[in-house]
């Protein structure tokens, strides 16, 4: 591989890696607070993509029950992305209410929370299929306004190409990461969240309303999941309601890679896996889907706490 090819792969990798990062952050936030993996996260990813699509295009469905249902309004892409993510965050809160809280208040086996979240995922995905059909939804190419679709960089004889969408994805992800970093590191809410993650019972003794912070966490998680779904959707289209499932599974590899519950770990893990996938030569692209999971295995063997995780592994 020459330097130009390397640069091309690197650019492709950090763009998709940045989305993996914000998506995986949603998983990791919930894990850090509850010690549970929310399997509905992949479904929220899909939901977010559909919501943003509807708001930006002003139409609900191509197929399904809501086929050709027009919305009375239509927003610009930026606003749609934001509202879509907020609605996804609210869906995240709903997931907490339905699938997690009843079990938590009873002190049930954490395995059950896993099953109930899988149940919610199943309902969401199939409800979506019922409502909007299994057609492919593709954002119109002028969704960002009238800008060129790609940038071409000539380096000697060689060519490096970057789609505008890739740049937008990367930029939006970076902004989101920076804001989240600020929220968690420098604000009162962030401090309280960290306290709850550290030890929920101590936090509640300190007068922190733990239930409320769990809700905040789920909102943030849903927000990030929906945002990631929308970004991926604008780049590659929404390939039917099952579209989030493979991202959901890949996200698991990302958080194990970075260290379960570690926020910087999720970002690093996302970047590593995004880059690793981008560097798979195209002859072997059929094996690309397995790269993230091969990493997961390697991490379990060599460094089970993940790249940036703490060494103690207790939570279920």
């Amino acid at each position: 591989m020459d330097a130009v090819q390397f640069l091309q792969n690197f650019l492709n990798g950090i763009s998709i890696g940045s989305v993996y990062a914000i998506f995986a952050l949603g998983y990791t936030l919930v894990f850090s607070i509850l010690g549970i993996i929310n399997f509905a996260h992949g479904a929220i990813f899909t939901l977010g993509a559909y919501l943003t699509y509807s708001l930006a295009v002003g139409q609900f469905g191509i197929g399904g029950l809501l086929a050709d249902l027009q919305l009375p309004f239509q927003f610009s892409f930026t606003i749609s992305l934001f509202i879509g993510a907020i609605l996804s965050g609210m869906a995240g809160v709903l997931v907490e209410r339905c699938a997690f809280r009843p079990l938590r208040t009873r002190g049930a086996d954490p395995l059950l929370a896993l099953v109930s979240s899988l149940g919610v995922a199943l309902v969401t995905v199939n409800l979506l299929q019922y409502l909007v059909g299994s057609e492919i939804y593709s954002f119109p190419s002028d969704v960002y306004g009238d800008i060129r679709p790609a940038f071409l960089l000539h380096i000697g004889e060689k060519l490096v190409v970057v789609r505008t969408v890739q740049i937008i994805i990367f930029a939006v992800s970076m902004v989101v990461l920076a804001l989240l970093g600020y929220l968690i590191g420098w604000t009162r809410i962030g401090k309280a969240l960290r306290a709850v993650a550290e030890n929920a019972s101590t936090a509640s003794l300190l007068g922190i309303n733990v239930d409320r912070f769990i809700l905040y966490t789920f909102f943030l998680s849903g927000f990030l999941g929906g945002m990631a779904g929308s970004l991926v959707g604008t780049s590659f289209g929404i390939a039917g309601p099952y579209f989030g499932v493979s991202y959901g599974l890949k996200g698991l590899a990302v958080i194990v890679m970075g260290g379960l519950g570690s926020i910087p770990g999720a970002v690093l893990g996302g970047m590593v896996i995004g880059l690793a996938e981008a560097f798979v030569p195209s002859e072997y692209s059929a094996y690309k889907e397995a790269v993230a999971f091969a990493f997961l295995f390697a991490v379990l063997l060599i460094r089970p706490q993940g790249l940036l995780g703490s060494s103690q592994i207790q939570k279920v």
């Binding site: 792969n9 492709n12 890739q166 780049s235 798979v280 195209s282 692209s285 059929a286 889907e289």
Partner: peptide
């Protein structure tokens, strides 16, 4: 170039 019907990202190809 090969790809999968489930792929969405064709940047490599």
């Amino acid at each position: 170039q090969k790809f999968m019907t489930t792929d969405t990202d064709f940047t490599t190809q």
